[in-house]
């Protein structure tokens, strides 16, 4: 798979995933707040979460 972004990045930024989130700052901030809550708390052990995250990345052929 390619990891070259398909869209034009925000002005004065590089074409990478993080830069694109700058387009949707409020939504991205809310997502990372959600994602941090998922990773930092809960009954599932972190290694199980990480294992399933990596497996999902492989299944979806996601290089990130």
């Amino acid at each position: 798979m390619s990891t070259t972004p398909r869209l034009n990045p925000p002005p004065n930024t590089s074409a990478d995933f993080g830069s694109y989130l700058g387009y949707i700052g409020k939504t991205a901030a809310a997502f990372f707040d959600l994602y941090a809550e998922y990773w930092q708390r809960g009954v599932l052990p972190p290694d199980l979460k990480e294992t399933t995250r990596l497996r999902n990345a492989r299944i979806t052929d996601c290089g990130y």
């Binding site: 949707i24 939504t27 707040d33 959600l34 809550e37 998922y38 809960g42």
Partner: peptide, 19 residues
């Protein structure tokens, strides 16, 4: 079982509709 997670998901999901 995870009301904190739910609250944050709602905030995130709503932001997509209201941005």
């Amino acid at each position: 079982a995870r009301p904190e997670l739910w609250s944050r998901f709602q905030t995130f999901y709503d932001s997509m509709w209201t941005s």
